[in-house]
Write a protein that binds this DNA or RNA. Structure first.
Lengths: 193, 193
DNA sequence: TTTTCCATGTAACTCGTTACATGATTTC
DNA sequence: GAAATCATGTAACGAGTTACATGGAAAA
């Protein structure tokens, strides 16, 4: 055993795609970019690298297929160990809560460094974006086989909607506070300790 | 113009911390790890690298301070251009919707590849975790200065709660389906595929 | 005929993390 | 005296993205 690779959601994604059907690289990337783009995001080069790793670990097999004069295809198939790994990764993924990404919350922490009106205006733009995203959320094309895209999309929509509601409520609250005489006691210069 | 660096939330985070008060590296990392850990996550080495980049770009100044025989401190202060950058990054961050991380949704897509009971059991474990996280969500220690940690934490809690509710509802629905005669057409063993 | 699609990949770049290295001071 | 804390950083590693390179086939 030369190396112990730690598998993550990308491995789960690829194994899942290959569990449904053996495919070659272009097909896999196409599928992820077009069908799964709302749930998963993986670039071509990343997929190739992951596929290599999975192959090196014996989780998938590669078979060369030539069609006419076209460039040869590498058809990837999941192996028996690969199915076992997929099963484990899937069960773990379902049972695990992901750590929340901080991206959007950093700004909230420092919101008081902006004039109230400006901050609220910015948050309004965020709200508008969220509304747009929620409004034209096209249900993805019909899913084939056992793929349950709807569930994932439904989850994303639910969370986004909660995000939206929180934002709307918060903006209202901030605006109400803005009209009060002394919104924040610590507005005066106050070194942090 | 030698290079155009693209600033992200990490730059925003560090500039925000330094806007509040000039600090040296250890203080900054300590602050992020202890006070902001629930909202932001940045490792020591990453912070040092970012601070170097910000310094190279003239966004922060470095001043050496010696205290007794201790190792010299590098005290970082935000500059005028740094404040301008902070302002822009902050406004943009507040006005922008972050792309959702896919981590937890990959599994949902492939859920049907697991026996229903097993999948539901896994989701129950996720639910239990979420409940725990929501239950002992200690309000962070009193925030000093203009830092508005509460708002960010409140947001995280709101989203988590929505996540939890969605999960609970979904589990119920899946269980209801499981007791029906023919929950999914392709559930039966199919010799052809 | 030119563009787009099919189909493969790789090199360079950047970034974040882990683990290590160093040494003084304070606390138990 | 030992352990934790203060305070600095760097080297190695792994991983993801961008951009590039190649060429046949189908479509406009």
């Amino acid at each position: 055993m030369p190396k112990t690779t730690t598998w993550d959601e990308r491995a789960l994604l690829l194994l899942g795609v290959l569990t449904t059907q053996s495919q070659h690289g272009y097909q896999i990337n196409d599928f992820i970019e077009n069908r799964l783009c709302r749930v998963a995001d993986m670039k071509k080069a990343t997929a190739y690298a992951q596929l290599d790793r999975l192959h090196a670990a014996g989780m998938i097999e590669i078979e060369i297929a030539q069609v006419g004069n076209r460039p040869p295809r590498k058809v990837y198939s999941i192996t028996e160990p690969g199915r076992a790994l997929f099963h484990d990764l899937l069960a773990t993924n379902l049972a695990t809560v992901e750590a929340p990404a901080f991206a959007g919350d950093i700004g909230l922490m420092f919101m008081n460094h902006l004039p109230r009106a400006e901050a609220i205006a910015a948050l309004r733009r965020r709200l508008a974006q969220l509304d747009t995203l929620i409004a034209n959320q096209p249900m993805p094309p019909p899913h084939g086989g056992k793929l349950n895209l709807d569930l994932a999309v439904d989850h994303i929509v639910a969370v986004r909607r909660a995000d939206r509601d929180w934002l709307a409520t918060t903006i209202d609250r901030l605006e109400a506070e803005a009209t009060l005489p002394n919104p924040h006691p610590q507005a005066a210069a106050n070194p942090l300790s």
